[in-house]
Nucleic acid binder design. Structure first.
Length: 283
DNA sequence: TTTACAAGGTCTGCAGGGAT
DNA sequence: ATCCCTGCAGACCTTGTAAA
């Protein structure tokens, strides 16, 4: 039996959480895979270089490592269920059972967005309600029952994903969403270079004033905040896997001054790059 | 590698134009 | 009327330098 199977898997389920007031949640990433189901309200979700205007009944399957952030709207509810889970553990369980496909949506870099309507939506919400029940239930076998209910949900999602016509076409994007998508895509391919609003303005042929406003409106963060978060996220990876100095990593991810890099890194993570490297080496 | 600070750049509220 | 966009100006934040 593998090491992963000997450990208790990480599996966190938050059922129908609600935020009534507008609140911009910050960009973040995590090692666990994530399932995000949108029950009710209004929300724009930015994941990696993609932006989604969510409708109730939509679900997002993602690997978790890609930067993501929901944007909420004042006066609109925001009811969602989220599941964070140890991708590696459940993949090994499914493989032991002879199934290699249940976790494919979480193995790719791009998130998968599926839309559930009518009967299929009822079925999915029934699955979530049952998972919630099994989570609340106590007793000696509560944990494995919860895990089995979760695996049942994964199989349902995988089979639904397999009939890929449920994925929404990109043609439904508004002009503003297209603008934000273009900015995010541009940053994704140029974040390691010297970037200013005027560079993006020239590349996309849209005024910098408009770019700033639309980006903030749709994502809840400014273009530069997003750019820095992207660079810091890359720097964290480099600090973990590379032997390069902090100064070199600073230049690699697009910063021009170590002083600025340290300040921004600390702003996003709460610690300096050197402290982060030390922590990762000792852990 | 990190902190402090001044100069310069970005963000945002407001006003308004053009297309539908 | 609504949406998309441009531009100005002041507030705010980031950049770049010097020094610890």
């Amino acid at each position: 039996m593998s090491d992963a199977l000997l450990q208790t898997p990480a599996l966190n389920f938050n059922y129908k959480e609600n935020h009534k007031n507008e609140r911009t949640l910050s960009f973040h990433s995590h090692e666990q895979a994530e399932i995000f189901y949108f029950h009710e309200g209004k929300c724009t979700y930015l994941i990696g270089d993609q932006i989604f205007s969510l409708a109730p009944g939509d679900i997002i399957l993602m690997n978790g490592l890609t930067l993501h952030c929901p944007k909420l709207y004042h006066g609109h509810p925001y009811v969602r269920s989220t599941i964070h889970f140890d991708h590696r553990f459940f993949q090994e369980v499914f493989q032991a059972l002879g199934d290699d496909h249940a976790l494919l949506p979480f193995a790719q870099v791009k998130p998968v967005r599926l839309s559930f309507t009518g009967g299929s939506r009822q079925q999915l919400e029934q699955h979530l309600a049952e998972l919630h029940d099994s989570q609340k239930r106590g007793g000696p076998m509560a944990a494995p029952r919860f895990q089995l209910a979760f695996m049942d949900l994964l199989l349902y999602l995988c089979s639904y994903w397999g009939t890929s016509q449920h994925e929404l076409p990109k043609g439904e994007m508004s002009q503003k969403e297209k603008t934000v998508q273009a900015v995010v895509s541009f940053i994704e391919s140029h974040y390691q270079e010297h970037l200013g609003l005027e560079t993006i303005e020239e590349a996309l042929h849209v005024s910098k004033y408009h770019l700033s406003k639309v980006f903030k409106e749709m994502t809840g963060v400014t273009i530069f905040k997003y750019l820095y978060q992207r660079r810091v996220n890359q720097a964290k990876i480099e600090l973990l896997v590379s032997d390069a100095s902090i100064t070199d990593i600073c230049y690699q991810v697009g910063f021009h001054y170590p002083s600025h890099f340290t300040k921004v890194f600390k702003q996003f993570t709460g610690i300096t790059p050197a402290q982060y490297k030390r922590q990762s080496m000792s852990g």
